[in-house]
Design a binder for these strands. Structure first.
Lengths: 249, 249
DNA sequence: CGACATTTTGAGTCAGCTCAATCAGTGTGG
DNA sequence: CCACACTGATTGAGCTGACTCAAAATGTCG
């Protein structure tokens, strides 16, 4: 596939808040990219590694996770094409968590040096990357609130709201339906729940007529009701105002 | 008190990983600072605000928090003197959470413009601030893992380990004892627990001889045991290797 | 001393957990 | 085309960690 196309997704995201001068945009689009394929379930970067490059998600769904002492996993974030989930490794070399492919994925490896050259030369580029990491932190905060203070059904609904909103923002959903290539154990690990409990509460959400979920496809049947259950307010995603809006039909 | 002294704490923290040229350090120390006093329990910045300045914690303990739909609070982070908990407002104006004083606090307000001038002119300064926000994100991840996947006793122990480690790193503890000016409801809100349950599990930790906790003072009696219960590994704090080490006596 | 905040304890409930099957979908080799 | 293996989804049956409600005890400070 086309490397240029993958980088365009990155630049599109970086320009969400402030657009870049054409020359800087060009330099971003010219970043060197080595494509690498990963199977579903495979680790992309492991906790403890010292990296000299960062990973652009080109195709597929990627997650960040940690394993605690007794083997339980917590999924910390989900990453769609256009994300560089380990951009932080530019400044904090040691990985304190792992990145894994949830689906078959294509990752574009970009040497730190190449990115650093751009961020140091152009403050707008630096700020754009920095801003992306700040928005990611904002999403962490929202997840923390969910895990700490929301009920299981609310957390599940929240994940659905967030996922379809993000997919819509990058043009991979129409706001009503999208692929959700997560198994139930994976959703449970993202929400801090057990698989069994997740499954039971998910069934209730389905039976309440809020969503349909079959064969990795999520369809929202009652957006308003889902948002209400989730206590969902998209502000924390810091998308463009228009992009954040999902209209109920 | 001395503004210069407050800024020195900030610069000390910023230089944890990469030291700055003297000229840049000087410019940081010359940042304009308007001191403002807050009572315990008072909000410093509220969710939804658009700010034109950021807040340097000069004295006291500050927390970041969100309130969910049904009124429950989740405390998202704790901030010690030298922190700028809302440095992100430089790039993401709208606050998606609030900052509150947990103790009487002195806050130094710094206009965004002044900081932006420095970060845009000196990539090292920009990177130092960026790095701080990345380390904060790393702490969020660790908290998320705790709330999602650790038992109540483990979470409580983890908070103690983290707090005393951070206090030691900035010279406010000897690694054995420090002030911990948090009420039990506050600790519970940070850990995603109810106050009552927190209290009961805390008593068990006390009775196991791991810590003493009286009158806002935490004393670690068995560091090794506490770390074990907490599954605590200070890597995620990204301190200097020496600073992260707390020796059991 | 009195007022107020904080901590502690008890009792009862429930959300979410574990264990253990069962069922369904998908891919493989024969 | 079928038997087998494997992963994921679903369901049932307890169990328990954590919650709520309520009250008592303790500490703090003007």
């Amino acid at each position: 596939m086309d490397k240029h196309h993958y980088l365009e997704r990155l630049v599109f995201k970086l320009e969400t808040h402030v657009s870049l001068p054409a020359a800087e945009r060009r330099k971003l689009l010219d970043l060197p990219l080595t494509l690498k394929r990963f199977d579903a379930g495979q680790d992309i970067v492991r906790e403890g590694e010292l990296t000299k490059q960062c990973c652009l998600v080109a195709e597929g769904l990627v997650c960040r996770y940690k394993i605690v002492g007794d083997g339980l996993r917590q999924i910390l974030s989900l990453h769609l094409p256009g994300d560089i989930p380990d951009i932080h490794s530019l400044l904090v070399e040691r990985m304190d968590h792992s990145l894994g492919a949830l689906t078959p994925a294509v990752i574009g490896l970009i040497p730190h040096e190449a990115v650093r050259t751009l961020t140091r030369a152009h403050y707008r580029i630096s700020e754009a990357f920095w801003r992306e990491t700040l928005i990611e932190a904002s999403i962490y905060r929202e997840w923390m609130v969910g895990i700490g203070r929301r009920s299981a059904p609310s957390r599940i609904a929240h994940l659905f709201c967030e996922f379809i909103t993000k997919m819509t923002a990058i043009g991979l959903s129409d706001g009503v339906t999208c692929t959700l290539p997560l198994t139930q154990p994976e959703i449970a690990d993202a929400l801090g729940l057990s698989t069994v409990h997740m499954n039971k509460k998910l069934r209730e959400i389905r039976e309440a007529g809020l969503v349909r979920l079959r064969a990795n496809r999520l369809t929202v049947l009652d957006w308003k009701g889902l948002c209400e259950l989730a206590d969902f307010d998209p502000d924390y995603l810091h998308l463009q105002p228009e992009a954040a809006k999902i209209d109920p039909q």
